[in-house]
Amino acid sequence: IDVRFTVNGLDVTVRVRTEEIAERVKELAKNGVDWREIQRIAEELNK
């Protein structure tokens, strides 16, 4: 599942395995978490 969001004007796409992880990623993006941090968290959750 590809999750797309915009952080500080940057369009970011993170690929995740499940809808649940996708929701977590969207939540982080909404809360203004840095995209590199979101990427790292997504990689952890995908394991």
Rank of each mutant, 00 (worst) to 15 (best):
I1Y: 10
I1W: 11
D2A: 04
D2N: 06
V3S: 01
V3W: 00
R4E: 14
R4S: 14
F5M: 14
F5V: 15
T6V: 15
T6R: 11
T6Q: 15
V7Q: 15
N8W: 00
G9W: 01
G9A: 03
L10A: 10
L10N: 11
L10G: 06
L10D: 09
D11G: 07
D11R: 05
D11A: 12
V12R: 04
V12A: 05
V12G: 02
V14L: 13
V14C: 05
R15D: 03
R15S: 12
R15I: 11
V16M: 02
V16H: 00
V16Q: 00
V16R: 00
R17F: 10
R17E: 13
T18S: 12
T18V: 02
E19S: 12
E19Y: 06
E20Q: 13
E20R: 08
E20L: 09
E20A: 13
E20F: 06
I21C: 03
I21R: 01
A22P: 00
A22S: 06
A22C: 04
A22R: 05
E23Q: 14
E23W: 04
R24G: 03
R24I: 14
V25H: 00
V25F: 01
V25D: 00
K26Q: 10
K26Y: 05
K26V: 13
K26S: 09
K26T: 11
K26N: 08
E27V: 08
E27W: 04
E27K: 08
L28R: 01
L28G: 01
L28N: 01
L28S: 03
A29S: 06
A29I: 15
A29V: 15
A29T: 05
K30W: 06
K30R: 14
N31T: 13
G32S: 08
D34A: 07
D34P: 08
W35F: 14
W35S: 08
R36V: 14
E37P: 01
E37T: 09
E37H: 03
I38V: 08
I38W: 01
I38T: 01
Q39H: 08
Q39W: 08
R40I: 12
R40D: 07
A42K: 01
A42C: 06
E43T: 10
E43D: 13
E43R: 06
E44Q: 11
L45H: 05
L45P: 02
L45I: 04
L45Y: 07
N46Y: 02
N46L: 03
N46K: 01
N46W: 05
N46D: 08
